[in-house]
Write a protein that binds this DNA or RNA. Structure first.
Length: 170
DNA sequence: GTTGAGCGTT
């Protein structure tokens, strides 16, 4: 069954999904009654505890491209597109599949026109169900650039190719 | 025929 493996996957990343009990964190900040501590730099508790912002404060996205992970292997591009379409204008929606086997790798990318749409889709579809699997929406990292910039064609015009292997005297 | 870590074929 897919549920068991999904549960295992959820257990792995439970740190970023489950909201930790705030009572424990607040208890940590309770200063001990021992007044021996001079506390030369009293911090503003309001800035530490914060408002209602949970520990996983969602920072604004810096890219309209989103990385969708946890996809079902049956989920395809269109399903992804239809799922993320209501959140904004999709410029791209693709499920990455292995070119050899042709099957999905279980993750994909969606790109919106603006950051707001991406933010909306992220907060709307993160840790939600798609094809029976819990998907995760995260900002995508810039794709691998071109590997070989090819600075110049060396050893083409000089003719100085060290063909002879340098043999170590050792 | 699916068994699950992670960032793409152009």
């Amino acid at each position: 069954m897919a549920l068991s493996s999904q549960l295992r996957r959820l257990l792995r990343s439970s740190a970023s999904v489950s909201s930790p009990p705030s009572s424990i964190l607040r208890a940590t900040f309770c200063s001990s009654p021992s007044s021996s501590a001079p506390a030369p730099n009293p911090p503003h508790l309001s800035s530490i505890i914060g408002d209602d912002t949970e520990v996983s404060n969602v920072p604004p996205l810096t890219t309209p491209k989103l990385f969708i992970s946890g996809l079902s292997r049956l989920t395809t591009d269109e399903k992804l597109k239809n799922t993320f379409a209501p959140f904004g204008q999709l410029l791209e929606a693709k499920v990455i599949a292995d070119r050899i086997s042709g099957r999905s790798k279980g993750f994909g990318f969606v790109r919106y026109a603006t950051l707001e749409e991406a933010e909306n889709a992220r907060q709307g579809m993160n840790a939600k169900f798609l094809d029976g699997w819990v998907i995760f929406v995260d900002p995508a990292k810039p794709r691998q650039q071109k590997p070989a910039p090819q600075p110049d064609t060396d050893s083409s015009h000089t003719g100085f190719t060290s063909n002879k292997t340098v043999g170590w005297c050792g």
